[in-house]
Amino acid sequence: MAMGFDLTPLYRSTVGFDRLFDMLQQAARAEGMGSWPPYNIEKTGEDEYRISMAVAGFGESEIQVVQQGNTLVVSGQKHPEPEGVEVLHRGIATRSFKQSFNLADHVKVLAANLENGLLTIEMKREVPEALKPRRIEIATGGQKAIRQDNAAQPQIGIAKAA
Score class of each variant (00 low, 15 high):
25 Q>N: 07
146 I>D: 12
106 H>P: 00
153 Q>F: 11
86 E>S: 10
70 N>C: 02
144 K>L: 08
56 A>M: 12
50 R>I: 00
66 V>C: 02
96 S>R: 14
161 A>K: 10
132 K>I: 00
133 P>M: 12
69 G>H: 02
74 V>H: 12
70 N>T: 15
84 G>T: 04
66 V>A: 10
133 P>F: 07
89 H>L: 14
28 A>K: 10
43 K>S: 05
113 N>V: 08
56 A>G: 12
18 D>Y: 10
156 I>V: 15
18 D>R: 07
56 A>P: 04
57 G>Q: 09
69 G>A: 07
90 R>E: 15
89 H>K: 10
116 N>Q: 13
40 N>R: 14
10 L>M: 09
105 D>G: 05
40 N>W: 06
39 Y>Q: 10
92 I>R: 14
30 A>T: 09
110 L>P: 00
20 L>N: 13
22 D>A: 01
160 K>D: 04
71 T>P: 03
96 S>P: 13
77 Q>C: 04
30 A>E: 05
88 L>R: 08
66 V>Y: 01
44 T>Q: 04
103 L>I: 02
38 P>Y: 10
9 P>L: 06
156 I>D: 01
84 G>S: 05
108 K>C: 02
65 V>E: 05
96 S>M: 05
115 E>K: 15
78 K>L: 00
85 V>Q: 11
76 G>M: 03
79 H>Y: 01
131 L>E: 15
1 M>C: 08
137 E>Y: 06
123 M>D: 08
16 G>A: 13
26 Q>D: 13
80 P>H: 02
66 V>H: 11
91 G>H: 12
37 P>A: 01
140 T>E: 08
91 G>D: 13
27 A>Q: 09
87 V>G: 06
83 E>M: 12
158 I>F: 14
33 M>L: 12
157 G>D: 09
71 T>C: 00
68 Q>A: 14
3 M>V: 10
30 A>H: 07
122 E>V: 10
26 Q>N: 15
91 G>M: 14
77 Q>L: 09
64 Q>H: 11
73 V>R: 14
67 Q>V: 03
124 K>W: 03
72 L>V: 04
118 L>F: 05
10 L>T: 03
109 V>K: 07
159 A>E: 11
27 A>I: 01
142 G>F: 12
8 T>M: 13
115 E>Y: 07
132 K>R: 15
7 L>E: 00
48 E>F: 04
158 I>L: 14
116 N>H: 09
79 H>S: 15
73 V>G: 08
162 A>Q: 09
113 N>K: 15
138 I>M: 13
24 L>A: 07
93 A>E: 11
40 N>I: 04
51 I>K: 05
4 G>F: 00
16 G>S: 09
114 L>H: 05
97 F>L: 03
43 K>N: 08
